[in-house]
Nucleic acid binder design. Structure first.
Lengths: 216, 216
DNA sequence: GTCTATAATTCGATAGAC
DNA sequence: GTCTATCGAATTATAGAC
C-alpha cells in the first residue's frame, strides 16, 4: 500500500518534470507558464508549486537534467587510442548525432546561454565539470602527441576543439537564416543536411592532416 | 522655430529607439520592459507608445535596424576577383571583426533566431534579401570556378559557406561554456581570442586548398 | 497530496489633462 | 508632443478546504 502510494507520487512528480522539460524547451524560460506545465502534466497548477516551489527552481531542475545529458553525450565514447582521423570522425558523429536528436534542446541552450550565462555555467555540477575536464585532458594530450608524431599539422588543441564544435554545432543554429538569405530550395536544404556529417568530418581532417616537411 | 521643434521631436524619437536597442539587446524581447526603455531614454513611458504604438512594433524597428547592419557588413567588401585564399581571409576578417565589435547584438540574434524565427526572417526586407542573394551568387560562381581551376579541392559552395560562417561565428556563442568546461585560465582565453582570426583563416584554407591529382 | 479560490504583482496599453 | 493616472489582462504564488 505504502509502496503503491509512493510510486504514484513519484510518478506525478516525474510527469511534472517531463512536462516542464517540454514547455521550457518549446518556449524558453520567460515564455513558459506554470499553468502550461500543469496542463501538459495533467495536474493542477498548485501541485507544480507543491513539488517544485517556484518557477526558478523547476527551471533549474530542467537545466540540470538536460545540460548534463547533452555534455555527457558530447564528451563520451571517444577512443583516444584510435588514429587521429578516426577520433575526429567519432567526435563529429557524436556531436551531430546528439544535436540532431535533440535539436529543440540544443537551440534552447543556445538561447539561454546568452540570457542567463552564469546560471547555466554555475548549474553545471562539480562532478560533471571534473568528468568533462578529464575527457578534455585526454583530448589535449592525444592532439599534442599527434602533432609530435606528424599525424596532423601543428595546431593548438583548444583551437582545434573550438573548430570541431563550431562546425558540428553551428549548422543547427544558423542554417535557417542562411538558407533563407541564399534562397536555397527545400530539396537542396535536405541534400545539404544529409551530407553534412561527412562534409564536416572531411573538412576537419583535410584542415589538420599532416602534409610533409613544410611544417604547416 | 518649426525647425527647432522638429529637431527636438526627431531627437526624442531617436533617443527612444537608441534606448530600445540597448534594452532589447541586453534583455531580449520578453525580458525588456517598456518602462525600462522609457527610463533609459529619459522620457515618459506613454511617449514610447506615442511614437512606436506597441512593444511588437518597437521591437521590429530594433531588429530591422540592427539585422540589416549585421548582414550588410558580413556580406560586404569581398573582392571576388582576388585569389581564393584572399577571399577566405577577407570573409573571415569581416565576420570576426563585425561580431567582435557587436558581440551583444550578435548574441541577441542567436537567442531570438530560436524564439521568433519567422519574425526575424520575415523582418528581412526584400531589398536586403535581394542584395544578399546577389553576393551569394557571386560567391557560388567564384567557388565553382576555383574548384574547376584547381585552386581548391572539390566542395559544394553552400557547405563551404556554412563551414566559414560556423568557424567565424560560433566562437562568440560557445567560448564561455567551453572555457568553463575545459578549465581554461583567463590568460589562456585571451591568447586564444587574439589568435582566433588567423587560426580560423588558416584552418579553412588548409581544408580546401588543392593538393594535387588525387582529387580530394 | 490534491484541489479551488484568490491574493499580489507586474506590465502593456490607453484616457485625458495640459 | 508630453505628462499623470489608471485600467485590465496575465501570471506567479499562496491559503485553506478536503
Amino acid at each position: 500500500m505504502a509502496q503503491t502510494e509512493e510510486n504514484e507520487n513519484q510518478e506525478k512528480e516525474a510527469q511534472i518534470l517531463d512536462a516542464a522539460c517540454s514547455e521550457f524547451l518549446a518556449h524558453g524560460k520567460n515564455g513558459t507558464r506554470m499553468q502550461g506545465i500543469a496542463d501538459r502534466a495533467g495536474v493542477n497548477k498548485a501541485l507544480v508549486f507543491y513539488y517544485f516551489h517556484s518557477k526558478d527552481l523547476i527551471f533549474q531542475a530542467v537545466v540540470d537534467r538536460n545540460f548534463r545529458m547533452l555534455i555527457e553525450t558530447m564528451t563520451m565514447n571517444v577512443d583516444f587510442t584510435a588514429p587521429a582521423e578516426s577520433i575526429i570522425r567519432q567526435f563529429t558523429h557524436n556531436h551531430i548525432g546528439v544535436i540532431a536528436k535533440n535539436r529543440e534542446l540544443f537551440q534552447f541552450f543556445s538561447g539561454e546561454i546568452w540570457m542567463n550565462p552564469e546560471e547555466l555555467i554555475n548549474g553545471i555540477s562539480v562532478s560533471l565539470k571534473k568528468q568533462t575536464k578529464a575527457v578534455y585532458s585526454g583530448f589535449e594530450a592525444r592532439i599534442a602527441a599527434a602533432v609530435q608524431k606528424h599525424e596532423i599539422r601543428s595546431i593548438q588543441p583548444l583551437q582545434l576543439l573550438l573548430n570541431i564544435v563550431s562546425l558540428d554545432v553551428f549548422y543547427f543554429i544558423a542554417a535557417p537564416i542562411i538558407f533563407s538569405l541564399t534562397g536555397t530550395s527545400a530539396a537542396e536544404q535536405k541534400r545539404i543536411a544529409q551530407k553534412r556529417e561527412d562534409e564536416v568530418a572531411d573538412f576537419i581532417w583535410n584542415a589538420i592532416k599532416y602534409e610533409g616537411g613544410n611544417g604547416i
